[in-house]
């Protein structure tokens, strides 16, 4: 089977992200349109309804290393959030504690990372966790 190299895979993801994914509750794009290696990305998650996150807009920074997509990206919340897999000091997502990153495979993508994080916000335990003031940043 043809193994799509990193850069062409990221170009595909970029084009998909530019068209818009799903219902618009998650989105992503290049941090810098000049970044020919496409390493640094911005992600946005709109908090799921009927949870403490409802109507909140969360910004994230996603970094795709040289081994992407064989290895997962690193993910960091820029907006303050209280979730068990997010560091309360700098917003870094603990790869081992988020299944989509821990069980990463080549079918996973920037989109699945954001969508899975949003699903985590809506789980029974996470949906009621007390949150920092809306709009505060790390």
């Amino acid at each position: 089977m043809a193994k799509v190299p990193r850069n062409f895979r990221l170009l595909e993801e970029l084009e998909k992200g530019e068209k818009g994914i799903g219902d618009g509750s998650c989105s992503y794009g290049l941090e810098d349109g000049d970044d020919i290696m496409m390493s640094n990305w911005n992600g946005t998650i709109i908090g799921p309804g009927h949870t403490v996150h409802e109507n909140r807009i969360y910004s994230l920074k996603i970094t795709c290393g040289e081994d992407y997509p064989d290895r997962p990206p690193t993910v960091q919340f820029l907006s303050r959030v209280n979730l068990p897999f997010v560091s309360s000091t700098d917003g870094r997502v603990d790869t081992a504690r988020l299944p989509v990153l821990a069980n990463w495979n080549r079918n996973s993508s920037l989109e699945t990372v954001l969508v899975e994080i949003r699903k985590e916000m809506a789980t029974l335990t996470n949906r009621k966790l007390p949150q920092p003031p809306e709009g505060s940043m790390f």
């Binding site: 089977m1 043809a2 799509v4 190299p5 850069n7 062409f8 170009l11």
Partner: peptide
């Protein structure tokens, strides 16, 4: 430059 022959090559163009 970089060039990739996708799964569908040669029915689809190289990237």
């Amino acid at each position: 430059l970089e060039l990739f022959l996708p799964e569908e090559y040669p029915m689809a163009p190289p990237k």
